[in-house]
Write a protein that binds this DNA or RNA. Structure first.
Length: 565
RNA sequence: GCACCCGUAGCUCAGUAGGAUAGAGCGUCCGCCUCCUAAGCGGAAGGCCGCGCGUUCGAAUCGCGCCGGGUGUGCCA
């Protein structure tokens, strides 16, 4: 039941307006003591030509309150509505209990494809905390869209093209060894890459050799390709360990190299449509009308750029998946690039350009400055995850020495803490990575929410009767703590929808954190399991529903929910 | 220079398409386990919501102008 909608109808009748006009004006008071819903009458002053408080009283008199509203009263220019709490709580609980782990899901997406480009790792480069945002935001959106009935397509647009691979092969041929690479994988490749840059400062000829090797890759030279593909394979293998820990999956690993043979048709089409212009030897698309600098499509030496590849990729995705939306989960440094990219497609006359969206996010820096792989100023994600798991294990040994699957739980909680932390605030915010913060498991954190879930599970385990089937005395829930929980359970669906509309997973993170807080207050204030079975059954239903919604919420942000911890 | 983004408590952030006395968490200080998981709960302290002007019955929220920080700005991705 949609309370707000029903309330809008009621007010509409009293105010002689339409429910559509009223609905957006209804709000939720900051303080629950003032009411559960409120209708401010300020805006009606002009049309009614009366003082707002007077309008409130007049509408109030004409109101015929529906059953779910226990009371309505005016307070200045506001009409405040108080719900029938018991009925509301009962409805909220049955709503969750009936749908179980599908609560909050919908078919609004109707199977429409949504491409989500995220993580997009670079071959031969280590996975550091700078890659965490795109990976977990993208992965969470993947789950959220899927939950709402869309068909998400996760794309890891690999960074597997460019002269750096010529450099890498050059370095490998000169100083590398097969054993070393097999053994240390990415770190060995990185070492070679760094060494190349050092040596190239002394010997400029190395850059020519590198270009030559890259040319060989482009020309599909067997030896070059073999080394290149081997590097790629090893990188993906190593990165897969992290994806596995994070529970992140992809439907496609078509990266930059995949589009090599798909760019020419796009270039031809641009020429055909007279959008391409020669400028200082390079071919560009001018977009002065949109107040944007020109987008370079071909360099003056005829080589392509990432814009060219991204164009080809967009067309390929449209053709292959016929997407309803195509999201690019990429840092805000590329704002301009995506604006230009989308503009080019629009200028080519494709209406679906509006379905492309840059889901940008802020930078991660370290307490002592910017991340820099070359300068060794990096924090590897693997280390962060390992530390988090290690710390969790220590806490478990201290607090739950009897827990059976300690390692398994430590992994879920430790990794969960890191992911939760990365998805706790608006994407656009820059963040400073701090071990102290990530490894703090008190307060609004992943472990806190997981802990609340474990508490709920524990209560349900302890029940020595079938509470679900037992008659429930909802009178046991006639308190503000239970009501606060019910409200959060009820509004969860809206939160999921909003997270999807705005591509902001943190709405879900916030919601389940609030839910966990509400549950812990309830738990503290009210004994849940006692002699009275009917009352116990009602309270256990709260634990059950809260547990269910927390579990759903956590899974939507890619965090696990252990039953004990 | 220009464009975009950010600026709320010591720190990290919420603040829902402008609304009723600005909210959390961390950290600090003080309380609460003979009882369902204390990774918990409660309390205290801590705010010219960067500054100014404007729009409005009403602005942390919208507009303009400053200030501070970040990012980008033609052949890297």
């Amino acid at each position: 039941m949609d309370y707000k909608k029903e309330l809008a109808k009621t007010i509409a009748r009293g105010a002689d307006m339409t429910a559509e006009e009223i609905s957006p004006m209804i709000e939720i008071p900051v303080d629950t003591n003032m009411g559960d819903y409120a209708f401010p009458c300020f805006r009606l002053a002009k049309t009614f030509r009366k003082a707002p408080p007077m309008i409130a009283s007049e509408i109030m008199e004409k109101l015929q309150l529906p059953g779910f509203v226990r009371e309505a009263k005016t307070q200045g220019a506001y009409i405040n509505f108080f719900l029938d709490k018991q009925q509301f709580i009962k409805n909220a609980l049955t709503g969750v209990a009936e749908k179980g782990e599908n609560y909050g899901s919908s078919d609004i997406g109707k199977g429409r494809a949504v491409c989500i480009d995220y993580s997009s790792v670079n071959i031969a480069k280590p996975f550091h905390i700078g890659h965490l945002s795109t990976t977990v935001i993208g992965s969470s959106l993947y789950k959220i869209y899927g939950f709402l009935g869309y068909k998400p397509i996760g794309i890891n647009h690999l960074g597997d093209w460019g002269t750096q691979f010529g450099k890498l092969i050059t370095a490998y041929k000169m100083w590398g060894s097969k054993q070393e690479i097999e053994k240390n994988s990415i770190s060995a490749m990185l070492e070679l890459y760094v060494r190349f840059h050092d040596e190239a400062e002394k010997d400029e000829g190395l850059n020519d050799t590198a270009r030559a090797w890259f040319k060989k890759i482009e020309n599909a030279d067997p030896e070059a390709l073999e080394i290149f593909n081997w590097f790629k394979e090893l990188t993906l293998k190593e990165v897969a360990v992290i994806y596995d820990m994070l529970g992140v999956k992809f439907d496609s690993y078509d990266g930059e190299s995949f589009y090599n043979d798909k760019m020419q048709p796009v270039i031809d089409e641009l020429k055909e449509k007279n959008l391409l212009e020669l400028s200082d030897g390079a071919y560009v698309v001018r977009m002065d009308d949109a107040d944007l600098p020109p987008c370079i499509i071909l360099k003056s030496d005829g080589a392509t750029l990432y814009s060219t590849r991204d164009l080809a990729a967009a067309f390929y995705r449209k053709k292959t998946y016929d997407f309803y939306k195509c999201l690019y989960v990429v840092a805000y440094q590329q704002d301009l690039h995506f604006k230009q990219l989308f503009k080019v497609i629009e200028m080519m006359g494709y209406g679906w350009a509006k379905d492309l969206e840059h889901v940008s996010f802020g930078m991660v820096s370290l307490e002592d400055g910017t991340l820099s792989t070359r300068k060794g100023k990096v924090v590897f994600l693997q280390d962060v995850l390992d530390k988090a798991v290690e710390k969790t294990l220590a806490i478990i040994h201290e607090k739950s020495p009897d827990l059976e699957n300690k390692n398994e739980v430590a992994k879920i909680v430790g990794v969960g803490a890191v992911v939760f932390d990365a998805l706790r605030s608006a994407r656009i915010k820059d963040t400073t990575f701090s071990f102290d913060r990530v490894l703090n498991f008190d307060g609004e954190t992943g472990p806190y929410v997981q802990y609340t879930f474990a508490r709920c599970s524990s209560l349900l385990r302890r029940a020595d009767f079938d509470y679900a089937a037992h008659e429930k005395d909802y009178g046991a829930l006639d308190n503000k703590e239970a009501f606060a929980i019910a409200k959060l359970l009820y509004s969860f669906s809206d939160t999921v929808q909003k997270a999807c509309d705005k591509n902001e997973p943190y709405f879900i993170t916030n919601h389940i954190t609030e839910l966990a807080k509400a549950m812990n207050r309830f738990y503290y204030e009210h004994r849940i399991i006692d002699q009275d079975k009917a009352k116990t059954a009602a309270r256990l239903e709260i634990a059950n529903c809260v547990g269910t919604v927390i579990k759903i919420g956590l899974s939507l942000i890619g965090v696990g929910a252990p039953e004990r911890m």
